[in-house]
Write a protein that binds this DNA or RNA. Structure first.
Lengths: 341, 341
DNA sequence: CTGTTAGCGCGTTCAT
DNA sequence: ATGAACGCGCTAACAG
């Protein structure tokens, strides 16, 4: 049978309270009894029952999620995932608070982080804007001993405990391989459409994609990066202009959001002149475009997985428990029209 | 504050024991008091604390996993995943028992199912062989009220509570799209290498692949299906013969195991004559082949996810809890050399 | 049929 | 510095 605190107490010849003090690294225990207890713990192979502990503590984990108030499908999906997490928060003993901040606004994000700290939550998760202000605020959070997790987009400088998101360089390389191979050696111009080069995930995807294209598919001619601000209207206009300026666009890599605009622009292109298109995030728009053949492949990150992973990590960090990195890796889903869920 | 059994008891004007009886649908409660309790539950929005319940019950979930004693990389991975699940079984309150059966042996599998029932576990998971004997045995399991989950390969006839595995038809279609598009309109012969047409997952992949190729890539000439029995030696011989017989093999879809043999055969082909190759399951062999360019894409199912999902589902079913299907969907991972984990 | 009571494994006063 | 005792939310004898 699994050893309990009682067994430890008996084996060490002390009381339950003392065992508890040692287990939770609280003061008021002589160094010698501490050692006795530690020995008993390792000899009996004791592992504390987290469920029982939480029950006794009546512990809930107040968690703050800071999300850009961007209105694209992906962010809506993220919100939806957070709503689901909230729905099951009673069972999970979490109390999730959602804070909105303007998109791509480093100052606002930094302020939001500072304000979140004031509530002294058990953990904070946020979609990072990769800027010095944010980094400084993140360091303040960590200095307060509050577990901090970046979500979807990471922060340079390691001022966080964990990153719950995909490997964006790998995503960029993968997009390049798919695009290049789907082209089948065909020469022509390839356009890259980003949201903003101010966010690290977009930058990483873009760099990795460009590198891989140049290296592996030299016949493709890379055009300068376009920035659509993740906004459908802007994107439609930009891509419309692109087709007007260049007759021989054979490929497009859309690494940000706002694909509704991209699809509208693509619909205006004659069927036999349509480029190979790789986009990010499976939404209603990209799903329909995959099925109709306007988009050839979609790289996706599962917002639900990211949210749940962030919660798991935050809770674990709050308890001082280790995180099994391999199990928290967020995978890049590749969707063709054939394997849509 | 979250309502507890005490609140329910007070609200309904009954005792704790009665509330417990109603909550756990146990007999010995008059219909009228039952209704009172039910009303209190829904009025107060009571949700039972599973952790506390398990603590009180001291409940552990004895789970039986029936696995074919096949020695390929994938099955070894599955075993490894089960070992990991065993390692954390103390915390998860599970007691996992592993039962080996000869591969592809319907009679042995049926017997193993019957024997598993004798232990009255909280749930059973097994890799199905799609045969009448097995179906009958599965029905006996379900008749005993024991939750039953198929793992990796499903059973026709719906005599199970859940299937923890990928959509194999989607996998076949995806392989066809990747192969066809990587071919870039190039004509030539395409070979399909299966393990055995007697298992449902292989059959489904094969059928879906053939259908999609014929429909979408008519220039490719499909060769008759080869059966390598998931054995590297056999596979090497068969593929060697294939290349000897046909000079213009442009693509191979390996939908089973034994890829060590496939890779060895491919190494003997001149670099400029190598076909596009799509294979299943990320193993040391396929990973190395992806990196060296011998294999172009790998479709993978994550054995760890499948095992953990099976456990979650079995526990939920054992508790009479609903299963969120979308959250238990096992995804088809697509790996190129660029997005290897 | 219904209620009382004693734990499950752990954390936490309040004494000593 | 240490220990006794109670309670978290729920289940399970054991009485009535």
């Amino acid at each position: 049978m699994k050893p309990t605190v009682h067994d430890i107490a008996a084996h060490a010849g002390v009381s339950l309270a003392t065992v508890d003090r040692v287990l939770n690294r609280r003061p008021g225990v002589s160094i010698s009894t501490r050692e006795k207890v530690d020995r008993a713990v390792s000899e009996l192979g004791f592992v504390r029952d987290v469920g029982a502990a939480n029950l006794a503590k009546g512990r809930v984990y107040p968690l703050t999620f800071i999300i850009p108030s961007n209105d694209n499908s992906f962010m809506r999906g993220l919100r939806h995932a957070l709503d689901e997490a909230k729905a099951s928060s009673v069972l999970e003993r979490t109390a999730i608070r959602l804070v909105d901040v303007p998109a791509f606004d480093a100052v606002a994000l930094a302020r939001a982080l500072d304000e979140a700290v004031a509530d002294a939550p058990a953990g904070i998760a946020f979609v990072a804007v990769d800027a010095p202000d944010v980094l400084a605020a993140a360091e303040r959070v960590v200095a307060q001993g509050i577990p901090l997790v970046t979500l979807v987009s990471d922060l340079s400088g390691a001022a966080r405990d964990h990153y719950a998101g995909i490997d964006n360089a790998a995503a960029g390389r993968t997009a390049a391989s798919l695009l290049g191979r789907f082209l089948g050696g065909q020469a022509g111009k390839v356009a890259v459409l980003a949201g903003s080069m101010l966010v690290r995930d977009h930058r990483e995807r873009c760099d990795a994609f460009s590198d891989a294209m140049v290296r592996n598919f030299p016949k493709a001619q890379l055009l300068p990066v376009l920035e659509g601000r993740d906004d459908p209207g802007t994107v439609e206009q930009i891509i419309g202009a692109l087709f007007a300026d260049h007759a021989d666009i054979v490929g497009i890599y859309s690494l940000g959001a706002g694909n509704r605009g991209l699809v509208r622009a693509l619909e205006g292109v004659a069927e036999d002149k349509r480029p190979v298109v790789i986009a990010h995030e499976l939404t209603e728009t990209t799903r329909a475009a995959l099925q109709s053949g306007l988009i050839d492949a979609v790289l996706n990150q599962d917002a639900g997985h990211e949210v749940r992973s962030a919660i798991r990590v935050l809770k674990a960090k709050a308890d001082g428990l280790p995180v099994i990195a391999a199990q928290e890796r967020i995978r890049i889903d590749i969707f063709l029209k054939d394997n849509l869920p």
